[in-house]
Computed example of a mutant assay.
Amino acid sequence: MASRAITRHELTRRREQLHDLQRYLAVLEADHDGARAKLLGFRQRYLEALGPLMRELDELEGQLQQATALLFEALKRQGLEAPMPAMPQAKAWPEIPALPEAVPLPPEPTGPLTDLPPPSLKTLYRRAAMRFHPDLAPSGPEREVCEQRMMVVNDAYANGDRGRLESLLLAAGESPEKVIGGPADAVRAWLGLCEHMVQGRIRIVQAQTAWLHSQQMHQLRIAIERAETGGMRPLDIMAARLRAQIAERRQELYIGERVGGDARLAADFLRQRYRRLTGLGLG
């Protein structure tokens, strides 16, 4: 069955649509990469300013948990009950992955102009006549073959038998595009596949960008940069709070390591630590 022709106008329109999709995708990818770069830069600045203090605080919490466990076991051996708070979990920043590599679009089908429609029956007849007319053949056996073929051509044209004319021309070596038209179906399939691939990539980029914007670190970056624009120094304030917490934990650790000989003080220490970590009171 002959391929449905694709007009030059339709081909141009579909290519423009594909290019519009690709331009839109390029904008989305640039926006994503910009947002990711800002987030990575902020994370680096945040960790440089606060990372050492956070690590020091985490180490103190670990030492406090060891001291707490020792007090808990000591009270347990004495038959006394006291709460054993769980070790607070340090929050780790999630990885900020880059976009996956895009799958390259397949090459456009090559060949002659794809907007060549299948030729008319009359055009096929003329082409067949130019190939098989006896007057164009040398005398002898070859001329006789052309006479027989021309009879078939005339009969096919008289009966509107396009298939026979196509078969004769193709068997004689005529270009398929000149007989049945350009490879329109292949071009349509290529355009459809490219559009599908670009639209799929757009969905991936949009989902990844939405994930970036949903991260707590993104919200923190926005808040800190907004405060800095207003003349504040939020990272310095956060660093001061961390130093205050470190001083409190050191004092707490000092107490926790020295109350083991007094069951009442040890139990009070565990209750206070439980209350601080959970925010819950004990009856």
Rank of each mutant, 00 (worst) to 15 (best):
262 D>F: 02
173 G>V: 02
103 V>E: 08
163 G>I: 06
93 W>P: 08
70 L>V: 14
148 Q>Y: 05
214 S>V: 12
241 R>T: 05
245 Q>W: 15
136 L>W: 15
3 S>A: 10
204 I>D: 09
25 L>S: 02
185 D>A: 02
76 K>W: 10
24 Y>L: 00
222 I>T: 05
35 A>F: 04
92 A>V: 14
84 M>Q: 11
51 G>Y: 01
254 Y>A: 15
179 V>F: 11
194 C>Y: 01
36 R>N: 06
106 P>H: 04
152 V>M: 06
63 Q>T: 14
136 L>E: 12
162 R>M: 08
132 F>V: 12
114 T>C: 13
121 L>A: 08
248 E>T: 14
77 R>A: 07
178 K>E: 09
96 I>S: 02
115 D>L: 01
51 G>D: 02
137 A>Q: 13
21 L>K: 05
89 Q>H: 15
173 G>S: 01
113 L>I: 03
242 L>Q: 12
211 W>S: 11
225 E>K: 00
41 G>H: 03
76 K>V: 08
55 R>M: 11
204 I>F: 07
187 V>S: 00
134 P>Y: 06
18 L>Q: 06
128 A>F: 00
283 G>C: 07
17 Q>R: 07
217 M>Y: 00
45 R>D: 10
259 V>N: 05
11 L>D: 15
165 L>K: 03
270 L>H: 03
27 V>S: 15
184 A>Q: 04
213 H>D: 04
28 L>K: 13
97 P>Y: 10
65 Q>W: 09
236 D>H: 08
91 K>W: 15
30 A>S: 13
171 A>M: 04
167 S>P: 01
